[in-house]
Design a protein around this nucleic acid. Structure first.
Lengths: 226, 226
DNA sequence: ACCTAACCGGAGAGATTCCCCCGGTTAGTG
DNA sequence: CACTAACCGGGGGAATCTCTCCGGTTAGGT
């Protein structure tokens, strides 16, 4: 092969249109089913054949990248912003509340941030940046006496992932319940005594509904194992 | 139908033996794959055809009942015991540590206790009893000034389910990591300042492994949707 | 208006998993 | 030892889901 840089032929108009339709359809379906949703569902919702989906995107990871690339970049900016806060604790809580708002509203973003999905480049970058942000804010908050000295960024990340993963379950019955649980988690990180919790507790019925949702891990793929 | 009580014919010896083999096989497979494991796998491990499994047990729920009936009764006893403690906080922590030990060791028990599986009678009884236990201990610990006044049994249950569900992920890399996270959670419930955390924090590598596991929600069934 | 490379979607092969049918086998009795 | 009711396992139909082949269609340049 010559080293000539292949001029990137722009897609034909219909191909381009289908690409957009697929991304839009995927965004909607990911939002309420998560990123494990069947690819055929996405193709059908976009009004194209499944072959077209595979022609435009090599596989699930590439589609995810196309759908979430922008919103991931938004999160990166939020992380940078949070790190620039003088009051590290305030920066940390604001950052986490923003993240959890996303996790609660969008099942796809939730999957992306609370599990270890592989093969999506922007996602690796996000994870690294996220870790750095939490580490930095936590360390500074500790120096400022706002966070217990024996907690680590890994502790925080693990607890956040655990809680974040459970959030969609509670969202059905009580959309804002996550505020209370994030507050409870953060209270465990502080060296002083407890602070009042926001939002009412779940009722027993709401808890039941949430537990049910927890079980519906979701239609994972059958057929070829990827 | 006459109301005559059918004399329960005891199973033929080979049928009885197969039943035992199936229960034993199911126990092993549930322990490391969770209760969503394919029924055909269980039949194969037991060395019988899948038809035999369906002949002995009406479906997944009945098999679960047969496998976990006894261990669930054990947990019930532990709950009663915990409630008899004079120091409610001590009783609560001891109870939860016991439960989490089980959740970490056995994927099947984890599914049973952290999700809302329906159709297993002993399980409904366990959930009711568990809720009563937590409610009682929490209320008493609050009166004794050991737990913040604004926390509810529903809060505790939700957080426990969220964390419990994440525990198997960390078990691969660090079998005892759950102790630290349960302690962190419980610290958030106390009105006073923080207490030292047990067990070392996860290393970044261990955290990565745990996140990966979180994603492997389980080989959900393909084929008929039950 | 015509031509061709690129594109399209249906149809289908292969993989899983649930569940049941059917012909062969065996436990337990007279 | 013979007999029969109960039992057994392989095999297969149906449902899902991933990914590819192929003949027909269309965008965009001449």
């Amino acid at each position: 092969m010559g080293s000539r840089v292949e001029k990137e032929t722009p897609l034909r108009r219909d191909a381009r249109r289908n690409r957009e339709m697929l991304i839009a359809a995927a965004r909607e379906i990911y939002t309420d089913q998560g990123v494990d949703a069947p690819l055929d569902d996405i193709a059908r919702r976009a009004g194209v054949g499944s072959a077209t989906l595979y022609r435009r995107f090599a596989g699930r990871a590439e589609l995810i990248e196309a759908v979430f690339g922008d919103s991931l970049r938004d999160i990166l900016r939020a992380a940078e912003e949070a790190r620039s806060a003088t009051d590290a604790w305030a920066g940390l809580t604001a950052y986490l509340e923003r993240i959890f708002g996303l996790l609660a509203a969008d099942r796809g973003t939730n999957d992306l941030m609370t599990t270890g999905i592989q093969g999506v480049p922007s996602l690796d970058a996000l994870r690294k940046e996220n870790h750095k942000t939490l580490d930095d804010l936590l360390r500074r908050a500790q120096l400022q006496g706002k966070v217990r000295a024996d907690a680590t960024a890994e502790d925080l990340q693990f607890m956040l992932a655990a809680l974040g993963r459970a959030v969609p379950g509670s969202t059905v019955a009580a959309p804002l319940a996550w505020r209370r649980y994030l507050a409870l988690l953060l209270d465990g990180l502080r060296p002083e005594g407890s602070h009042p919790l926001p939002a009412p507790s779940l009722t027993p019925e709401q808890l039941g509904a949430a537990m049910l949702q927890l079980g519906k891990v979701r239609r994972p793929r059958a057929g070829r194992t990827d």
